[in-house]
Design a protein around this nucleic acid. Structure first.
Length: 215
DNA sequence: TAGGCCATCTGGTCCT
DNA sequence: AGGACCAGATGGCCTA
């Protein structure tokens, strides 16, 4: 996992490590008959001296080693493994819950209609990606018009939607991702097949955004 | 019923 | 040793 670039925008990925999550408890730990344990390095018998020769100083030696690690029975070992697995499952579940809540937060800031079906995970990511790109373009366009520069994109009237339909209120921003190729910053991302970015000029109008335009 | 989406479990790997 | 992260597997639910 690539660490955040130092100059990354302040999209704070709060490491909400301990955000208690409902359901993160062991509601359904179905401990399936666990597969054969990983190549468990069977802990060597700690009674084995490390060549230092146990000249009656076994107590000191044990104290230096921590003293608590004594050979465990197979039963105790498997019990310990199961316990560790269970704890790992809980953590993993919690981690995924945190991930999902972050995804929900992201959904919350994306412009969608109330009656729109909830975005799937991949849709949310694509939408957010393209939405950010579109907003960036908006700022750029605004900057250029502010300083009297040539517009970067032709006027909206000259743009056509991919399907050739006329541009209504909702057609002013046509689907940025429905085209192949990528001109956006996203091109630098190692994006999978899904995360294409807008390939064509986007004429934005505040409020005229629907998630379907970005997917 | 097939396919998509999702939650969970699991083992491996890396890091502290 | 233990936690975080990841990817694969599996099974459930829902919809066209």
């Amino acid at each position: 996992m690539a660490p955040h670039p130092s100059g990354a925008p302040a999209v704070q990925v709060t490491h909400e490590t301990k955000q208690p999550f409902q359901g993160a408890s062991d509601d359904k730990v179905t401990c399936v008959a666990s597969a054969p344990p990983s190549p468990s390095r069977v802990p060597g018998n700690c009674a084995e001296a490390e060549g230092g020769g146990c000249r009656g100083a076994s107590r000191k030696l044990r104290a230096r080693r921590g003293g608590r690690s004594r050979p465990k029975s197979e039963l105790a070992l498997s019990k310990q493994r199961r316990n560790r697995r269970k704890k790992a499952n809980d953590r993993e579940r919690n981690r995924m819950h945190n991930l999902n809540s972050a995804l929900d937060a992201l959904r919350g800031v994306l412009p969608t209609f109330p009656d729109d079906a909830k975005l799937t995970k991949i849709e949310t990511l694509r939408f957010a990606h393209n939405y950010i790109w579109a907003l960036t373009q908006t700022l750029r366009i605004a900057d250029h018009s502010l300083y009297g520069l040539e517009p970067l994109v032709p006027p909206c009237e000259e743009l056509g939607s991919p399907d050739g339909s006329s541009l209504g209120d909702w057609g002013s921003l046509y689907s940025p991702v429905s085209q192949a190729g990528s001109l956006s910053p996203a091109a630098s991302l190692e994006e999978g097949p899904g995360l294409q970015a807008p390939a064509s000029p986007v004429c934005l109008r505040p409020g005229a955004l629907a998630f379907s335009d970005f997917l």
